[in-house]
């Protein structure tokens, strides 16, 4: 079964993971692994084999800086 890694800044509880699966049903087909990554500041990053869903503050900050960088 394919793996999906969920990065978060602290270890997620089962309820939190279940709530996530509710919102993203395709997660049911994967084996969910939870990894702690403090550099995210807050939020989650869901990493499939070929897709990343970035819900972290670090990701948002990077996005903004990159957009601003390209504007100038």
């Amino acid at each position: 079964m394919k793996k999906v890694v969920i990065y978060s800044t602290y270890e997620l509880s089962h309820q939190e993971i279940d709530k996530l699966v509710e919102k993203i049903p395709s997660l049911k087909n994967y084996q969910i692994v939870n990894q702690v990554d403090k550099s995210l500041i807050a939020g989650l990053v869901i990493k499939f084999a070929d897709r990343i869903i970035d819900l972290s503050i670090k990701g948002r900050l990077n996005n903004i800086s990159k957009k601003l960088y390209e504007e100038t």
């Binding site: 070929d50 897709r51 990343i52 869903i53 970035d54 819900l55 990701g59 948002r60 996005n63 903004i64 957009k67 601003l68 504007e71 100038t72």
Partner: peptide
Amino acid sequence: HLIEKAKSTIQEIGTAPIIKDYG
């Protein structure tokens, strides 16, 4: 002018999750 543009860009960024295909 650049600073104004930067400010407006910041405003425009929505709160949608960032989904990126990667390899």
